[in-house]
Amino acid sequence: MAENISIRAVTTAEERALEEEREQEKAFRAAPKLNKSPLHGLWALTNRDLIKWYKNPIQLFISLIQPIVWLGLFGKALNFGAFISSQPGITPAEIAALNLKEFGTTSYFSFLSAGMLAFIILFTAAFSGMSVVFDKRFGFMNKALSTPVGRGAIVVGKILQSVIRSLIQAAIVLGIAVGLGMDTSHLNALSIAGAFTILFLMAFGLSSLFVMLALRGSDWQTQMAIINLLNLPLLFASNAMLPITIMPDWLKNVVKFNPVSYAVDGARQLLLGSPGSLGVPLWVDFGVLTAFAVILSGLGIVLSWRLLSK
């Protein structure tokens, strides 16, 4: 009897183990229905880079402090308004008129604030290619490429994470600028929404450009060189820091081919109510930037099909 019981106990234990194994196998084999849309995985890829950003306190802190430093130090030190107001015998009305004539707004600081929005986006976008290089270097790119995720989704994910980060930073810059004395008489929900749409288009186009330039290479030194080569010219050959009116003619023409200029121009028209310094209406700014974003991201996706598999 006792033997019987023990035998049965063993059997049940065995049965249970078998059952468990069968259960496990079933769980292992029951593959779920897959999401096969070409956009699947896009948010996962975007979010991965965003997690790396906001879960890293130092990186987050630096990217928040950077705009404060630029606006606070650069914006306040490069005080062109002082040239005007320090003229002997000038009246406040004349100062205001001169500011309006040169900068299209109440002060140089307000003028620069709009430029700084574009600046912070340009600098964030420039580094979007860096994460492509590191993903290639550390093997993650190969992992992603061995999955059915769309090659385009890999590229668009990189672009999107950079766009989101740069727009958040631009919003912080705007807040700081207002705190430091930017003209707020034209700020309202609509003008802010419009300005950020313009900035979104520029961020999308610029991020596409830098991601695209990183698709080929896999060493970060080259990528750094590309960033330095493009970043400052794109910034200086634009209307972001100085009014176009004081530039020589040849530079004016260069400025007109720079997409950054159109973003700054649009942002100034919307946020500061200034007349367009490029001499184009607002819809042209939107048009140029939309074309810029569509063409470059399209080019990036097409190149990703070609360059991401050899």
Binding site: P32, G41, L45, N56, G139, N142, P148
Partner: peptide, 24 residues
């Protein structure tokens, strides 16, 4: 190569892989 993202946890890495395969 080691392809996992070092800044994510082990679980986050596997779930990310699953997302790339379109597994709900």
């Amino acid at each position: 190569e080691y392809t996992a993202d070092e800044d994510l946890t082990g679980l986050q890495n596997i779930i990310l892989c699953a997302d790339l395969y379109g597994i709900p």
